[in-house]
Nucleic acid binder design. Sequence first.
RNA 1: GCAGCUGUAGCUCAGUUGGUUAGAGCGCCGGAUUGUGGAUCCGGAGGUCGAUGGUUCGAGACCAUCCAGCUGUACCA
Length: 485
Amino acid sequence: MAKKQKTFKPKARLPRGFGDRSPSDIRATDEMVAKIRKVYELYGFDPVETPMFEYTEALGKFLPDTDRPNAGVFSLQDDDDQWVSLRYDLTAPLARHVAENFQNINLPYRTYRNGWVFRNEKPGPGRFRQFMQFDADTVGAPGVQADAEMCMMMADTMEALGIARGDYVIRVNNRKVLDGVMEAIGIGGDEDADKRLSVLRAIDKLDKFGTEGVSLLLGEGRKDESGDFTKGAGLNGEQTKQVIAYIETGDVDGNEGVTELANIDKLVRAAGYDEDRIKIDPSCVRGLEYYTGPVFEAELLFDVTNEKGQKVQFGSVGGGGRYDGLVQRFMGQAVPATGFSIGVSRLMTALKNLGKLGAEEALAPVVVCVMDRDTESLGRYQKMVQSLREAGIRAEMFQGNPKNFGKQLQYADRRGCPIAIIQGADERDKGEVQIKDLLEGKKIAAEIESREEWTEARAAQFPVPEADLVAEVRKVLNRYCGDAV
RNA sequence: GCAGCUGUAGCUCAGUUGGUUAGAGCGCCGGAUUGUGGAUCCGGAGGUCGAUGGUUCGAGACCAUCCAGCUGUACCA
C-alpha cells in the first residue's frame, strides 16, 4: 500500500506578457510584413538587421543595479561579466550599427528592418513584453524633407495594408514647439525640468482623458477608476489655461519648430497628401527623451471589437521622429537621423479584427486514411500522399493510432480537412480509392438523426480509379477554394 | 511602484451561518461501434481547494503574511 509517489509537476503556463502565436497569427503577420516591405522598398530603403542582444550601455541604459537589475529591459551578464540586454526598440541598435560601421556607410543611409523587441515591464491588454516592430530610418539627412517623407511613407503603408483613407491619420508635431510653449508659461529653466516632463506627459494623454483630464493632470492631479490618485504637474490656473489653449490652437510665437512644421506641411501637401492623411497636431508628444525635432504618430480612427465583445480604441500603431543626438553618443560627431517604427503585433490584431488579414486561411491538408497496417500497404498510402504533394496539394497520411477507423475521420473532421482518402482491401482489389468529401458530408450530417443512418449512408463519398486520384481530388478542392490549388 | 478585484480539475465555474469522502458542465481517454465524422448512452483518469502560519473539536470557507493573475493608474528609452 505504498503511497503514490509524488513527482514534480510543473505548471504549464506562459511567462506573463508573452504569447504563443497561432497559425493564423503567423500567416497574418507574414502577409503584413510583406506588404510593408514592398512600400519601403519602393521608397528606396534597403533591409539591414541587427541582433536581439546589445551591450547594455550601447542601448543607452544605465548599467543594471543590484536592486533591480532588469528594470525596463531584460538584462543578463555574459560569461565575461559584461552586461548585455535584449533590445527594447530597433532605433538604438541601428544607431550603434551606424556608429560602428560609419566608414563604410554611404550617407544618407536609408534602411528598414523588422523584428522582435522586448520590454521588461507590466503587460496590459494588448501590450506584451515581446512584440514585433517594423522600422525605417534615414541617417545623415538633416532637412525636414526627410521627416516629411517618413510621414508620407507611413501614410502609404497604412493604405497598403488595406486601411481606408479616413480610417487613419498621421499626426505630426515638433518637440521644439512644445519646448517653446513651456518657455512661454515660465517653466523653461533648469529648475523646472521635472515639471516640464510632467506637462509633456499630461499633454500626451489628451486622447485618453480628454481636455478635462489633461487639465487636472496639469494642475493638482487626477483620480483613476480604482480611486488611486495621480499627482499633477502643479501648474497654476493661468498656466494650465495657456497650455490647453496651445493644444487647441497650436499657436506659439516666433518658434523655429513652428517654421519646421509649416515646411513639412507644405512638402506633404505639394506631394498630394491632404489633412485627412497627414495632420499637424499640437497634442502629439511621443517619446520624451531622445527626439530632437519633428515627431509623428500613426493613429487608427476606427473602433475595433475585441474577442470579449468590447469596443476598443486602438489609437497609436506606430510613431517616430527626429533623433539627431543618438548616433552622436557613440562618436562625438553630430549625425542627424529620422525614422519611425510600426507596432506590427498591435496593428495585426486590429487588422485581423477588421477582417483585412487572414481572410483566406490555408486549406487544411487532405488526409489519407490507414486501413491495412502491414508495411506494404503503408507504403502504398504514403505513395498516394506523395503524388498529391507533387501536384502541389497539402496532404498527409494519418499518423495516429489507426486501430479505430472512426478516429481517423474524427481527426480529419476536427482539423477541418476537406477530403479523406480511403482504400481498404475491397477498393484495392478493384484498383480504386474512395474520395470522401468531408465538407459536403458535414452539411448532410445536420439532417441525419440516427447513427446507423449516418454510418450506412457513407455521405458524400465516391470511388474513383486509383490512377485518377490526383485529378479527382483537385476537382473537389476547386469547389472550395477556386484557384488556390 | 500605487490602487481595486480575483485565486477550487486541462478550461469555465458551483460549494449554504465553519461540519462526514470537495461537485457540475465542457474537454480528454476507453467502450457501445476492429470499414466511416455529428448526435446519444455507459465507464474512466484527472485536485497538495495559490502558499505558509494562526483561530477552532473541526477550515475550501474565518484571520495574518506572502505569492500569482486580472483591471485601472504611474513609468516606458
